[in-house]
Simulated scan of single mutants.
Amino acid sequence: MTTSSRVDFPPPTEGTVPLEVTLRRRRSVREFAADPLTAAEIGQLLWAAQGVTTDRGGRTAPSAGALYPLELYAVTSKRAMRYLPGGHGAEITTERDLRHDLMIAALDQEAVGQAPLLVAVVAVPERTAAKYGDRAPRYADLEAGHAAQNLLLQAVALDLVAVPIGGFDDEAVGSILELPGGQAPRYLLAVGHPRT
C-alpha cells in the first residue's frame, strides 16, 4: 500500500425508491457515461454493501456469526481505497488509476476499464474460520453475494447502472490491488451513470 490518507464520505441517506422498483429495474449494464461518481454516491454504494446499521456493529448484509469476512476496495480514475465501515470512510491505498490493469486481469472485459467506479468484494475467510472451520470459505462467498446484491440494488435507487463480474484472474487482481495475504477477490462490480 502506497499511502495512508483517508476519505470521509457524507452520511448515508434513506431514499424513496421502493425495493420492488429496484428489483424490477436491476439489469446488468456494461456501458457507462464518463462522468465520475460523487463521494456521496460512492459512499452510499459502499454503505449498502457493508455499512454499519446498529450500535453493536451490525451491517447491511447478513454475516455468519457477525464475523464480517469481507473487505471492499473502491477504484476510480484517481485512486483505490479500502472501505472502513465503522467510520463510513475509506483508506486510500494508491493514488493511481488501476482500472486498465484490472480490465486486463478481468479477461479484457471493457466494462471494467470504462466504469467510473469499480468495487472489488474481497473475502478474508480466516475471520470466520475460528468459529466455522472448513465452512468459512463458503460463508464468506455467501456474504459476498449478499453484499454485491445490496450494492447493485442501491445503484438502481441512485439512478446508476452496474454489472457484477466474476470472470477474472484472482491472483492478478490481488496483485494489482496489493491485497494482504489471506485476502482473495470474489467479485468486481462496475458502476456508473448510464451512457444514454
Score class of each variant (00 low, 15 high):
Ser28Cys: 08
Leu72Trp: 01
Thr54His: 13
Ala74Gly: 13
Lys78Glu: 15
Leu23Gln: 12
Trp47Met: 01
Trp47Phe: 13
Thr13Tyr: 07
Asp35Ser: 14
Lys78Met: 05
Ala33Leu: 04
Leu46Gln: 08
Tyr68Asp: 03
Asp55Met: 06
Thr53His: 07
Arg30Tyr: 13
Glu71Ala: 10
Asp35Glu: 15
Tyr68Glu: 05
Ala74Glu: 01
Ser63Trp: 03
Met81Asp: 00
Gly43Asp: 08
Gln50Tyr: 06
Leu23Lys: 05
Ala74Arg: 01
Thr38His: 07
Gln44Lys: 03
Leu19Lys: 07
Val29Met: 07
Asp55Phe: 10
Leu46Tyr: 02
Gly15Pro: 07
Asp55Gly: 15
Leu37Phe: 09
Ala40Trp: 03
Thr76Met: 07
Arg59Leu: 02
Leu67Phe: 02
Tyr68Arg: 03
Arg24Tyr: 06
Leu72Arg: 02
Ala48Gly: 07
Thr22Ala: 15
Leu72Gln: 07
Val17Tyr: 02
Arg59Ala: 02
Tyr73Asn: 00
Ala33Asn: 14
Leu23Arg: 12
Gly58Asn: 09
Arg59Glu: 05
Tyr73Gln: 05
Ala74Ile: 02
Asp35Phe: 02
Gly15Ala: 10
Glu41Asp: 11
Glu41Met: 07
Leu37Gly: 04
Gly65Met: 10
Arg25Ile: 03
Leu72Thr: 02
Gln44Leu: 07
Leu72Gly: 03
Ala66Arg: 12
Ser77Thr: 13
Ala48Tyr: 01
Pro69Gln: 04
Pro18Cys: 12
Tyr73Lys: 01
Glu20Leu: 15
Leu23Ile: 13
Leu45Tyr: 05
Arg26Met: 10
Gln44Asp: 13
Asp35Tyr: 01
Pro62Tyr: 12
Pro18Thr: 11
Arg79Asn: 13
Arg26Val: 09
Glu14Lys: 12
Pro69Leu: 08
Gly43Met: 07
Glu20Ile: 12
Ala34Val: 09
Ser77Asn: 09
Thr22Trp: 06
Thr60Trp: 00
Arg24Ala: 14
Ala61Asp: 06
Ile42Thr: 14
Ala49Gly: 15
Gly58His: 10
Arg59Phe: 01
Ser77Ala: 15
Asp35Thr: 15
Ala61Ile: 01
Phe32Ala: 08
Ser28Asp: 15
Phe32Trp: 06
Leu67Tyr: 03
Ser28Ala: 15
Thr13Glu: 14
Ala74Ser: 13
Glu41Trp: 03
Thr38Arg: 09
Arg27Glu: 14
Thr16Leu: 12
Val75Asn: 05
Pro18Asp: 11
Arg24Asp: 13
Lys78Tyr: 04
Ser28Gln: 11
Lys78Asp: 15
Ala64Thr: 09
Gly65Ala: 09
Tyr73Gly: 00
Val17Cys: 09
Lys78Arg: 15
Arg25Cys: 02
Val17Asp: 01
Arg30Val: 03
Ala48Asp: 05
Ala80Cys: 10
Ala80Trp: 01
Ala40Cys: 04
Arg26Pro: 08
Val75Gln: 05
Thr60Asn: 10
